[in-house]
Design a protein around this nucleic acid. Sequence first.
DNA 1: ACTGCCGGATGACAGATGTCATACGGCGAA
DNA 2: TTCGCCGTATGACATCTGTCATCCGGCAGT
Lengths: 204, 204
Amino acid sequence: MSPTIKVLLAEDQSMVREALAALLGLEDDIEVVAQVARGDEVLTAVREHGVDVALLDIEMPGCTGIEAAAQVHKVLPAVKLVVLTTFGRPGYLRSAMEAGADAFLVKDAPAAQLAAAVRKVLAGERVIDPTLAAAALAEGANPLTEREREVLRAAADGSTNAELAAALHLSQGTVRNYLSTAIQKLAVRNRAEAVRTAREKGWL
Amino acid sequence: MSPTIKVLLAEDQSMVREALAALLGLEDDIEVVAQVARGDEVLTAVREHGVDVALLDIEMPGCTGIEAAAQVHKVLPAVKLVVLTTFGRPGYLRSAMEAGADAFLVKDAPAAQLAAAVRKVLAGERVIDPTLAAAALAEGANPLTEREREVLRAAADGSTNAELAAALHLSQGTVRNYLSTAIQKLAVRNRAEAVRTAREKGWL
DNA sequence: ACTGCCGGATGACAGATGTCATACGGCGAA
DNA sequence: TTCGCCGTATGACATCTGTCATCCGGCAGT
């Protein structure tokens, strides 16, 4: 029989992470050789443990699972990458794919798909929910410019224009211009809705 | 040896739910006899399976884990209730306790605490993170009135005053008044921040 | 009976926000 | 090279939001 598949688990909530480890531990051909709770610890852990497949949550402190995926893909392209997330946002799927991910799973999929995905990516397959893929393709690319995203991100907590201007070293008028164009591109009526829909689409 | 502890798991994300089941399945004295993905299925499942301990996530469709806890506590007070949540919001802890919960765990606690909590509540103990308990007591009770909460909740998605007024059958001025008092009670500067901090404290 | 609080409302006002026209320098594509 | 887009900025304008004073009816405590 072939040697076991070495898996790294990156997920910030320990209880979930260890539970997933228990789940994968039930599989004979899979071994969880490393667990990390932060995105910025992924690369070194992958290196140290000779990982075959990295399972990456998106929302993590340090850096996102998508950024971690990009780092790993760049220096160790042979390592297979499975992105695992709570939110099936089309924009997330798109960025995950651009970062070199081999699979994209949402956490409300059946647990059996996790081990299945690990085996499939190792066999060279890609695993993507067809519905989500369709949604990602249907909605097109992120229409926001980098600067617009930054301003929107900064505005998300309810900061005022003056605070945004100070924080981003811009004039207050410029901040309003960016928010205005973002609002128009997203076809919404104010900054709060803009933040909301940008988040929802994974564009933020 | 005593019979195994019968546990119900309520959590909407299947992957997490099944992973937690796998984790608890490793314990000899614990048996997961039921799994549900919605809050409003908890009560009947508890009844049907003669559950000893119910593990309830807060964020669920149907109704929240806290509401489900209240229902179970009312009709089957002998069933022990463990509330499990992603967010350690003091207000959540408070409402969970008021709903009759015996334990309150956050998902970024170590996985070992889950089984430990199950055993402890069955032994009549209560399990609460001391830091969180302190925070819950320190910040006092929710200062918002029911109506203020409603308006704030409705305003969370970026709706304008006119829309809020229409949705809640209020005059536009009244909506503004409620938002204004909420903003003052929360000591913030606009509705977006008010929504944010109310959420954070679990007051929404 | 009186006081206070809640839900609900109005009007006036100041300040924040969103829109629009316009401008300039840089940079990449045609 | 010219066109278009991005980043940045200004000023003017209309509308939205937040505050405040004030009012009413109802209901719970004292």
